[in-house]
């Protein structure tokens, strides 16, 4: 099967839907399970990942011809760690409000599988422009997934959306607990697969 060159838009959209990091690639599940207790958490972690992903993707893509193949992974880790530190410091210095909300999440990112995986699979082989769009798509895809999970868990777990009490009571506390993260991720995966299957079938008909 010949691999068709993807356009930038395709790369971007694929990152969000067809290759969604959580629902399709099943990467970075620990944050997905641990942090996605509310929509706000999802947005914050998503933003942090988006930044680090785009920055690291571009960096690696820039220096892709100079990376010694035997030390790829250490280089990726180093790049991610540097960006995480830099973003953390810059936020703390110039945007204290955002730092207060996001500081906790930014520091978590160093070990995220999704970022390393995108660097290895994509940024180390493709030019900067493409890597940028791929990173953007992946970051947004992650954010989207986290928000969906956060939405379900926040609504069912604490009866709120974005901190606003919409139900007035807590329907199922279970959904706030970490174990429910797996539960919701699984159900959402199934749901998105189902949509994709239905969509493809329709296209064939």
């Amino acid at each position: 099967m010949a691999i068709k060159e993807k356009t930038n838009t395709q790369l971007f959209v694929d990152g969000i839907l067809k290759e969604n990091p959580i629902f399709k690639l099943a990467l970075s599940m620990c944050p997905a399970v641990g942090i996605s207790t509310s929509v706000m958490n999802g947005i914050l972690l998503g933003t942090a990942v988006l930044f680090v992903q785009v920055c690291s993707s571009c960096t690696i893509s820039l220096v892709r011809n100079y990376i010694h193949p035997k030390i790829r992974i250490p280089t990726y880790t180093l790049t991610i760690a540097t960006w995480v530190t830099v973003i953390d410091l810059v936020l703390a210095a110039y945007v204290p409000v955002a730092y207060k909300a996001m500081g906790l999440f930014v520091r978590l990112i160093v070990a995220f599988a999704i970022i390393t995986m995108r660097l290895e699979m994509f940024a180390s082989k493709e030019p900067v422009g493409k890597s940028f769009w791929d990173g953007l798509g992946m970051g947004l895809g992650f954010m989207f997934a986290m928000m969906v999970l956060g939405f379900v868990r926040e609504l069912l777990g604490s009866g709120m959306i974005l901190g606003y009490d919409v139900l007035g009571f807590k329907p199922l506390l279970f959904f706030v607990l970490p174990c429910a993260g797996f539960f919701v991720v699984g159900i959402m995966m199934g749901f998105f697969n189902w949509i994709e299957v239905a969509y493809n079938r329709r296209k064939e008909v």
């Binding site: 199922l172 506390l173 279970f174 607990l177 174990c179 429910a180």
Partner: peptide
């Protein structure tokens, strides 16, 4: 277990 977690 689910009920204990949900309605402790």
């Amino acid at each position: 277990a689910f009920l204990v977690a949900t309605y402790p």
